[in-house]
Simulated assay, not measured.
Amino acid sequence: MNQANDNDALRASLQAVPRALRTLHKALIDVETVYFGAVGSPLEHLQLITNHPHFAWLQAMSALMAALDEALDEPDTLTREAVAGWRAAIEELVGPGTAAASAFRTKYIILLHDSPDVAIAHGALRQLLGHLPKQM
């Protein structure tokens, strides 16, 4: 496979990941919102998600999603190493990689067991990650 085709295939594989991350992120927010209680208007909900300590643990995933979106917006060639790096970074959050953010992983594991929606979104993300190259 030539470099352009390899880059296109890597980019296509990686581009499927942000949607799965957003689905998982939304499922996590939905469960945490139920645990938190009444939140009021959508604007108040957004302010809680971005500013309240109850939701602070989700910022690790939010930051990773934003960085991945920025990387995919760049026209640069994607290398296997770069894509493997994204896979590793995501796996450090959701597993099975070594937890980079233990506060995130602790809460995540609880919600993974508590919520079928989180479990389904996790499975879909894991399936996509399985198609990405691993770091050596």
Rank of each mutant, 00 (worst) to 15 (best):
T106I: 12
L129M: 06
A99N: 02
M1D: 08
L64V: 01
L64C: 04
S13C: 09
S41V: 11
D117N: 10
S102T: 13
G85A: 05
G37F: 11
A124V: 09
G40S: 06
H122S: 02
L72R: 00
Q15H: 09
D76F: 13
P116T: 13
V118K: 03
M136L: 14
F104N: 07
L14E: 05
L72E: 06
P18R: 04
Q3L: 13
T98N: 00
P75F: 04
W57Q: 05
M61F: 06
A71T: 14
L14R: 06
V118R: 04
A66P: 01
L132A: 00
A9S: 07
L24Y: 01
M61L: 15
A88Q: 09
A16I: 04
L72F: 02
L58S: 07
R105D: 05
Y108P: 11
A71V: 07
A20E: 14
A38R: 08
G95K: 00
R126F: 01
L72C: 10
Q15V: 03
T79D: 05
A16R: 12
N51Y: 08
S115Q: 11
T77D: 07
A124C: 07
H54C: 07
A84V: 01
Q135H: 06
A101C: 11
P116Q: 07
L128N: 03
R19G: 11
A60V: 12
D69R: 00
T98C: 02
T106R: 14
W86L: 04
N2C: 09
A27P: 10
L112K: 14
A103Q: 10
A66N: 10
A38V: 10
N2W: 11
G40R: 04
L58G: 07
L111H: 15
T98H: 01
A121V: 12
V118S: 06
E74D: 15
V118D: 03
L125V: 08
E81W: 05
L93F: 00
A124K: 13
V31P: 03
A4T: 11
L14G: 04
Q15C: 10
A71S: 12
